[in-house]
């Protein structure tokens, strides 16, 4: 499945390429700089490990939707491929609906969990503040800003799945074979 090449889809893709590329670049830079500081300068960046973990969480959830579109979220299609067109479409509709139910739960409970974590502070935020500006910084950033990646990412993925579901419903009506994201086609 390819996203409709509307203006919104183009902007969405451009934003994702920019954001995800930037997060990966940051992750990459922090890991390498940390090695240099600890081994080369004998002055560890105590916040490095923590910040990397947070970035990984964000990258993982934010990229799910695009990964789905690119066919990089592995699925088994043996049964669907063996079925006649209409039955295949019906099966795909079932599968997509089930996935949407799961994502619905993840959006709701992910949001609740992020709110629950609002009381938890990120020590890294204080450490970075100290390292850069000296003295003690303002009371730290809340972990809400990390964990909110789950509802955001799940919602984005849900949009992609919903678009696919619409395509499958169309196929069900017209009797055509449902199409799927091109598995592995975009691998590396």
């Amino acid at each position: 499945m390819t996203a409709p090449s509307t203006g919104i889809a183009r902007i969405y893709r451009a934003v994702m390429v920019g954001l995800l590329g930037l997060m990966m670049a940051l992750l990459f830079a922090i890991m390498c700089v940390q090695v240099f500081f600890r081994y080369g300068l004998n002055a560890s960046l105590i916040w490095a490990e923590e910040v990397c973990r947070y970035l990984l969480i964000w990258v993982s959830f934010l990229a799910c939707g695009i990964a789905y579109q690119r066919g990089e979220i592995a699925a088994m299609r043996i049964l669907v491929d063996a079925l006649p067109a209409r039955a295949a479409a019906l099966t795909a509709v079932l599968a997509d609906s089930a996935v949407l139910v799961l994502l619905g739960f993840l959006v709701v409970y992910g949001w609740r969990y992020a709110q629950f974590a609002d009381g938890q502070r990120m020590p890294a935020a204080d450490f970075i503040w100290n390292d850069i500006l000296g003295g003690s910084g303002p009371a730290g950033l809340s972990l809400f800003w990390v964990y909110v990646a789950i509802p955001v990412g799940s919602a984005l993925l849900a949009v992609h799945v919903a678009i696919h579901l619409a395509g499958c419903l169309g196929a069900l009506v017209s009797g055509a074979r449902p199409s799927f994201p091109d598995a592995g086609g975009n691998q590396l």
Binding site: L20, M24, F61, A63, A67, A74, N186
Partner: peptide, 10 residues
């Protein structure tokens, strides 16, 4: 970098 992000997400 971008493609690595989507691949890892999977």
């Amino acid at each position: 970098l971008f493609e690595t992000a989507t691949l890892s997400a999977g």
